[in-house]
């Protein structure tokens, strides 16, 4: 860990200012990702601005604007509190489930909603500074492209980076069409749709998101929806708990009778960002919620997958997981 100055921010405005002034400064929220990477010498900030005391952890109904009827989660609220809040459990159980599928009880008590969105890939080459990695050190090459890539991407990767994005929470947010509220140094607040928040690696894998340096995530907004009684977050992993996803699927349906009015499917563990399965969704709208249709939708989505040397299984696994998650969504969480 490199030496850094430590400042405890007391208000958002000064915190953002401090950050914006120093290109090597970082916000410290729960610290669960940042400190891990600093110990590995992957992250090397010269200044940490501890934002964990900022009063940005409310969970409250949105009473005006386009998202009226939805709810807003404070950017510095803890993952545990988001998952267990009655409003979230009642109206967005998919989100609760996704959060609870991630990490461990201790980590969720520390991790913040904003920090979770900005956690970095778990690619082992990214973590080992002795290995080449374009994301960590642009231009050094991608260790995983022709290396051990069982855990890596099957969608949207580039020759420069084949990493997957690890958050579970963000996969649910993607299915729920959330918005990320950010504030910049000039005090401006804006809403970035979650779909625009993340990016594919292209030839700039060092950029995980489209959030510029110097902006603070103040809240996450969830629009109102009718998915609450037909949703499911499925996470497939190498051990039963406390492991990152091989593949995960957030599935949510709104039906009338047995006809699907709206479908939302997002996948984790398959791409550099939460992967919205738009093709599958399109296949489902207007159709009956049957196993056969789920399968057709899954086939449509997975047809575009491009596996690497060691992860071809993710194509079949992704396919089955979409079907299973949809079935579980329809059956209220039962298989």
């Amino acid at each position: 860990m490199r030496p850094f100055t430590y400042t405890r921010a007391t208000d958002a405005t000064s915190a953002i200012k401090l950050l914006a002034e120093n290109p090597h400064a970082k916000f410290l929220a729960g610290g669960t990702n940042l400190l891990d990477l600093m110990k590995e010498d992957v992250e090397r900030p010269t200044a940490l601005i501890d934002i964990s005391d900022l009063d940005l952890n409310d969970i409250k109904p949105i009473t005006a604007g386009v998202n009226q009827g939805g709810i807003s989660l404070g950017g510095l609220g803890k993952n545990t509190d988001a998952a267990n809040h009655p409003l979230v459990r009642q109206h967005y159980p998919l989100l609760s489930q996704a959060i609870l599928a991630g990490a461990s009880g201790q980590i969720r008590n520390m991790a913040t909603n904003g920090g979770n969105l900005l956690q970095r890939t778990r690619c082992p080459y990214f973590y080992e500074v002795a290995m080449p990695c374009n994301k960590r050190e642009p231009g050094t090459g991608c260790g995983a492209r022709d290396g051990i890539n069982r855990m890596h991407a099957i969608f949207g990767w580039s020759e420069h980076c084949v990493a997957v994005y690890p958050s579970d929470l963000a996969v649910a947010l993607t299915a729920l069409d959330a918005g990320v509220i950010v504030r910049s140094a000039n005090g401006q607040q804006r809403r970035i749709p979650i779909a625009d928040f993340y990016r594919l690696p292209g030839d700039e894998p060092e950029k995980d998101t489209n959030l510029p340096h110097g902006e603070l995530i103040t809240a996450i907004e969830l629009p109102k929806n009718r998915f609450a009684n037909q949703s499911y977050y499925l996470k497939v992993r190498d051990r039963a708990s406390y492991a990152f996803a091989l593949v995960s699927v957030a599935a949510a349906l709104e039906t009338e009778g047995n006809t699907i009015k709206q479908a939302r499917i997002a996948m984790g563990g398959v791409a550099h960002k939460p992967w919205r399965a738009l093709k599958a969704e399109q296949m489902l709208v207007g159709k009956e919620a049957t196993e056969a249709n789920f399968k057709l939708a899954a086939d449509a989505e997975m047809a575009d997958a491009k596996p690497l040397t060691h992860n071809a299984f993710k194509v079949e696994l992704g396919n089955r997981s979409i079907v299973l998650a949809l079935r579980m969504a329809v059956n209220g969480g039962k298989a």
Partner: peptide, 22 residues
């Protein structure tokens, strides 16, 4: 990794020992 001889599973997040739930 057969190219460099390093372990890619060098942490307890990559090397999976069973947890309670397993």
């Amino acid at each position: 990794d057969p190219r460099w001889g390093n372990f890619v599973t060098r942490s307890l997040a990559d090397y999976h020992v069973p947890t309670h739930l397993d």
